[in-house]
Design a protein around this nucleic acid. Structure first.
Lengths: 305, 305
DNA sequence: GTCCGATATAGGGAAAACCGATAATTCTAT
DNA sequence: ATAGAATTATCGGTTTTCCCTATATCGGAC
């Protein structure tokens, strides 16, 4: 038996296909077939039931593959331990961020990060909160920048900053005449929202004391898939919306048709936090990342640590 | 990294001596030294601090060796699992049987099976032929006891025995007066049948040269869902039906209102076979099962192997 | 029947792991 | 001080394992 063999059987168990499994392991199909056959002979049992057409795992194979997965995870842990012992900052740090934050935050920190922590290799992905947490769970990313509170009890979360909301409305909107936008104004306004699953929609509804989405009637089909789309809609006069601070920094100067106004309410903000697996071994890398983020935020947000 | 390497570092950690560790691993000392050095290079860290006089494990080495021990333990578990599974008779054998056979066959074989093959764990399910074949295809069962011929070309089938049909009629039925029931009598009789999908219905129709079910008209709503129900109907005088031999063994003595009579025709039987995936790896378990079945059938059926 | 998709087999070549011999270092005994 | 013992590292050659390409084989679809 051999760690490589275990990798092979896990790959086959995952894909139910020798060819694809071989590809995933970067070896030829005969090699993988041979090694698995050898392992089966060595163990004296059949792990996979193959026909020329399909592959199915046997009950005992299922059990053994489960153990193999654990072994491989442990082996991975050893490598990570070793790596983080050399220099915890080295090696790719895979950060996911919600889509209403990532495009506006990343430009602020990427360059400082490269200057301050050249040895750190950042891998960025953009997803919705639920997807991020799922990928965190599957070890596909190491940390996630999300808006809290969310139900992420299985993870550690560090609050980073509070990001105020701004109101964005078309230049010809009735709000144009108002000097101050009050809570009451907001409560009586229907906002353009992002589509289902985007936490920004929930946050906006909360700030505006809006009823649940289902009751919104004819606005429903205007749910946009991205903040950029949403702002396009505002720009052409479809309505107004709430925009988080970092995103505002980008548009305020660029778009003549959109007016952005700071909200007065105390609670009109969202809290951005970093979530990660409690067992994640490279805390130092995260801490260094956090420090760079905090050092490069504009003063319009409220730093929390 | 490699399971062997992990064995090596655990051995060194245990003995603090490369020579002794090598001995314990049945390799030469240079080999072990070399492999450990290679692993250290690969991980980029020092696991052992060696002087020419002594060996001491580093803190990170201690941590990693702890993980290595766990990995080796898991690997050992895999081997043990495989070992204890070597006996192909061990482990659940999932057999499906048609509903007109299972309740009458299983009581005959379960006790002998437990006596002769105590290590085998039988999981029984009852379904109609089509469902059984489907489950076989999906690896949900390992073998199916069905009446052949059926279109089961993708599976192997072993004929087990021919099970004669008996005629069951109410005590007050015209047949009561007849000494012999001829083919002609049968051809002119409308039988009570099982509902759609039960192979027994098809077999009975074949024996009696009956027309296709759709043409039977008013009998249609008397299609029963189980053989027991069917016999209840016979018992209260609704008509007569064909009953396979093993089922007859149960009712003949018990029910005063039902008369069962052996049919004279040569071809009045159904062939019971065992079907299984060609690739099923535990043929020995199946063979042992078949042997017990054949050894415990009554002499009223005709064994085929 | 022929083609297509999938796994198994065969043969040869490259990489690794292994061994024995020996060097190098350090401690100990004289 | 020096020889000897103990221990790990290094070197060259051999064996084993692993891998790849090409091909066979099998089952299903058309």
């Amino acid at each position: 038996m051999n760690l490589r063999d275990l990798k092979y059987i896990v790959a086959v168990a995952d894909s139910s296909h020798f060819g694809h499994a071989a590809e995933r392991c970067y070896v030829s199909q005969p090699t993988l077939s041979g090694q698995i056959k050898k392992l089966e002979d060595e163990l004296g049992i059949t792990l996979f039931e193959r026909t020329k057409r399909s592959v199915a795992i046997t009950p005992i194979g299922e059990t053994i593959v489960a153990h193999a997965r654990e072994i491989l995870e442990q082996a991975e842990t050893i490598k990570q331990l070793a790596q983080s012992h050399q220099d915890p900052l080295i090696g790719p740090l895979r950060i996911g961020a919600i889509m209403t934050l990532s495009p506006y935050l990343m430009p602020l920190i990427l360059k400082p990060l490269r200057d301050r922590l050249p040895q750190m290799q950042l891998v960025i992905s953009e997803e919705m909160t639920e997807t991020l947490l799922e990928r965190l769970r599957k070890h596909e990313i190491d940390a996630a920048l999300i808006a809290t509170p969310v139900d992420a009890g299985e993870f550690s979360t560090i609050p980073l900053f509070d990001e105020p909301f701004w109101l964005a409305h078309p230049r010809n909107h009735p709000f144009q005449e108002k000097k101050n936008i009050t809570q009451k104004d907001l409560d009586n306004t229907k906002l353009l929202l992002l589509s289902e699953g985007h936490c920004l929609a929930d946050q906006a509804m909360e700030v505006c004391h809006m009823k649940a989405r289902a009751e919104q009637g004819d606005m429903a089909d205007l749910h946009a898939a991205s903040l950029e789309t949403l702002l396009q809609l505002v720009g052409v006069g479809f309505g107004c919306t709430l925009v988080p601070d970092l995103a505002v920094q980008g548009i305020r100067m660029n778009d003549k048709d959109i007016v952005t106004r700071r909200l007065q309410q105390k609670d009109a903000y969202r809290r951005v936090s970093l979530a990660f697996r409690r067992s994640f071994p490279r805390r130092q890398a995260l801490d260094a990342f956090i420090e760079v983020v905090l050092d490069n935020l504009p003063d319009t947000v409220i730093r929390l640590s």
